[in-house]
Amino acid sequence: SAPPSGTQLDHVIQNIVKSHRETCQFLPEQLQTLRWKIFSQTEVEAYQRKSTEEMWQKCAHSITDAIQYVVEFAKRIEGFMELCQNDQIVLLKAGSLEVVLLRMCQAFNPGNNTVFFEGKYAGPELFHALGCEDLTSSVFEFSHGMCSLRLSEPELALFSAMVLISSDRMWLQERYKVEKLQTDIQLALKHVLQRNRHDTVLAKLPLKVMSLRSLCGRHAEKLRIFCLTHPLVAHSIFPPLYKELFTLESEHSA
């Protein structure tokens, strides 16, 4: 089909930026004013003394809250709700955590390597009890890298939409529809980056997409190991939506 006109691209941009803004869990300007709130050493040690189960529960709740905002983001992207129900679910199951990780860069302070968590800014050491030091530091490094791209809010919104509406996800039934939507979003993002004289970033985005997929794969693997090593509690401590999205079906129904 014909590529979108300038007016159509502007419409895509407006819709996605508005959708992002309306579904941000925390507005960037609010987070900016909270940067001085950092966990004290005593508070960090209290988190470090928590059990692995309690810390996993806290992080799963945090992720699940953030994902609900991503679902709202998806619903507001024009064309998403016109996809078949299977494909809406496939895209959210595969991409919602990726968008949460992308959005995390807005809640990240690269100056002191901290992220907003449970009301204050926390460094990676606060998450020690999870038993996932390697994954935690990779997530922090990813946020640091995203911050160094210095994406504007509209650029981040469009990149998030592009990550979510990925036509290469497995099990899509109407892949051509997802492809068309993704192409329009890609063109819109390119348009905004060029307009902002920021188009050198374009070449760096595919690497970020690969990092996101790798991080989500590693999260799934860590969760699988947690469920195997804590079989009695694993199914009672996680929010139902988290279980639905991330645990294997056999585990979910167990």
Partner: peptide, 24 residues
């Protein structure tokens, strides 16, 4: 293929699909 997603009821509810999967 679609069978693997038919149990995702919470996500369906969040998406506003009260009646579950229909022929997808």
């Amino acid at each position: 293929e679609s069978k693997s997603h038919q149990k995702v009821t919470l996500l369906q509810l969040l998406l506003g699909h009260q009646n579950g999967a229909k022929g997808n």
